[in-house]
Design a protein around this nucleic acid. Sequence first.
DNA 1: TAGGAGTTCTATAACGTTGTAAAAAAGAAG
DNA 2: CTTCTTTTTTACAACGTTATAGAACTCCTA
Lengths: 334, 334
Amino acid sequence: MAVTMNDVARAAGVSLKTVSNVLNDYEFIRPATKQRVQDAIAELGYEANLTARSLRSGKTSMLGLVLSDLSAPYYAELASKLMKAAARRGYRVIVEQSDAGAAAELGALQGTFRQLTDGLLFTPLVADADAIAARAGRKPLVMLGEHVMDPRFDLVTMKNGEAAAALTRHLLAGGRRRIAVIGARPDESAGSAGLRLNGYRKALEDAGIAFDAGLVAPAAWRRDAGAAAVAGLLEAGVEFDAVFGLNDVLALGALHELLIRGVKVPGEVAVAGFDDIDEARFASPSLTTVSPGMEEIAERSVGLLLDRIGARETAAQGVHVAAGFELKIRESAP
Amino acid sequence: MAVTMNDVARAAGVSLKTVSNVLNDYEFIRPATKQRVQDAIAELGYEANLTARSLRSGKTSMLGLVLSDLSAPYYAELASKLMKAAARRGYRVIVEQSDAGAAAELGALQGTFRQLTDGLLFTPLVADADAIAARAGRKPLVMLGEHVMDPRFDLVTMKNGEAAAALTRHLLAGGRRRIAVIGARPDESAGSAGLRLNGYRKALEDAGIAFDAGLVAPAAWRRDAGAAAVAGLLEAGVEFDAVFGLNDVLALGALHELLIRGVKVPGEVAVAGFDDIDEARFASPSLTTVSPGMEEIAERSVGLLLDRIGARETAAQGVHVAAGFELKIRESAP
DNA sequence: TAGGAGTTCTATAACGTTGTAAAAAAGAAG
DNA sequence: CTTCTTTTTTACAACGTTATAGAACTCCTA
């Protein structure tokens, strides 16, 4: 039997509610009474029962995080940082893996998972804005990433286009002219893939270089797909002097494939990625990439979500935030 | 206002408890009644309130997972698999990061976090067995990893010693005679580091090769520490023809450092790791390592924990389980 | 057609908190 | 001292579920 508020009240010789008031920093309590209650709490080792508190107050002090796969390095790092940011503010984060399935993504908006949380950090990859809006409910929801950019939703993201353009300019400045892009998603223009590809095209255009669709290889955002995409280009006889992996694992997969085939990096082909996962620094050669300001993303998305949770009314309009980025020039594309 | 059981009861023309009985698969309910209740549930879109259920039943349907850092690839993969294993059984996992701090590890055993969960999957790195036992409480607790091997606790682990010995034998069979070990923890013999080092020594001994303490480099289990450890050995003029990183990120850091310095891998020095993280397959050269049966670890630790949660009494004796391993021979040490 | 053994259902009381409203105590003003 | 205001404390209900115990049905048997 755990110690309850009632036990504390009895020990301190006050009513149940007075104990509750002390715990909730109610204004009008005599210092002597407060002390007596606190002594009783310390002596009995009382700890508030969160379940009961949640039931009564309707708040759980938990945030939900929906992402496709926690074992992907980018998401693992993001989740870790989000948890720490939330912990600093007295919240806990629970994670739901969607495996990039639409049903799982939409399911996380409702039911058990939603019920357990006061607000959601949501990284949709396949569900569309209308389907999300229809199921969004009234609890706050902050989008992470680029799949859904809709004025109805709050959104914290990165400067995909600008960063991809900056990276492309860097490759061009290094004398590269035929930059292959791997990881494109031909079917979508709004997601991270589309935005980064746009940045790439913009930089080419600004430099007066024609865009060649033959240099763009679609691929799922996994290592093996990155390797396969590069293998495909090589076997098709496509010539290129640089590879831009739309994220780091794609670039690392490509790097691996190039090295296996005896292609010199960066001598013959430069390689660059996007995300600056920990591994990028320690690849051989180390990977040039974009650091998308993950710390800032974590901090601001949790901050925004908690603002919404604390607000009286639901916001009429979504806020869009884009964290700053930084180019990380390393050996693979100096 | 969410739909409650009371609304369902009214709509179906039965009592509150009958609805509860339907939801909990109580045996004695007339099929017609059951149907009526289920229709009402479907029509009203009722969903059980987990908080209220928890308060009344004392069960949360959540498991706790305590680990040092979710952004470390090994832990990220483990967490992902544990969540899936738990989900298959109707449980959710919430993660607490200890940052390898004793206070945080012990803190996770008590207070809020413990309260929210029906049982704990615990990966201690610094806390000692007695301190854990003193705070273990009465809710089930399953240890993961090797830091605490104590008959009082249930434990799911891997075959560290055997696997390290097998890997060492493989290096020896490839003609390597001076195998450097990086990532040792001189202060502890019981943890993963100690067990793997023992396996290494055992294999050397069996092969009649003298152990040379000069080949053993202490290092924190991070990439940069692995790189630094190898750099240290090289700069100290220590000769070696193989590096055994006590985990994969150490080995990958070492691999990186060797390549930067122009040391041929595996030509001059073979490199091997431990864990078989996703990245190991895609390193250049790909990394020879040990796959420690993580799937099996996830499955069995969740299974064991749920057995304990479901059991009438607390077990008198801890059960120790060691998952099988598999050698992954790749390019870095063929 | 009563008696008994099942089966099916229900009223009521918890679980441990917080919110409401009002009572009690203390202080100020006349 | 009263009366009024402000501060402090309290009794009681409520959050939505499950547990207990017993009532009300059904069906069988004698």
